[in-house]
């Protein structure tokens, strides 16, 4: 097997340049500026957080695939972001629920004596 490959972790700490974001043909420098003006990406100093690589790639895929304009792409990206945040929260809540319950327990089943009565 080959030597281990090191990649770039796309997180907020790593910084990439405009050239990194435009160099793979997803967007032109003008489109990148438009995405920034629409609030889809936010620059940091002279560059952008590496998470923007993922955002720009996704925005370009949505634009091409859905034949949408950049303004619509910005709305879709916002909504997708919100859906993902909610899914992540739900995953956390489910994991919490799983931990809280011993196997076989079901929170929705009341013991007979505890059944709410009118």
């Amino acid at each position: 097997m080959s030597d281990a490959l090191n990649g770039l972790v796309l997180d907020e700490l790593e910084i990439v340049t405009r050239a990194d974001l435009c160099g793979n043909g997803w967007v032109t420098p003008e489109e990148l500026d438009l995405l920034a003006s629409l609030g889809v990406i936010h620059g940091r100093g002279q560059g952008y957080p590496a998470t923007c690589l993922r955002i720009v790639r996704r925005a370009a895929r949505l634009k091409r695939g859905l034949e949408a304009d950049w303004e619509a792409v910005a709305v879709i990206m916002d909504l997708l972001h919100e859906v993902e945040a909610l899914k992540s929260e739900l995953r956390g809540l489910k994991a919490r629920e799983r931990q809280r319950l011993a196997p076989g327990d079901d929170p929705h089943v009341f013991p007979e004596d505890g059944e709410p009565r009118d």
């Binding site: 770039l8 972790v9 796309l10 997180d11 590496a50 993902e84 992540s88």
Partner: peptide, 9 residues
């Protein structure tokens, strides 16, 4: 972290 991506150029 969960969901993070690694780019392998």
């Amino acid at each position: 972290q969960q969901g993070q991506q690694i780019r392998l150029a």
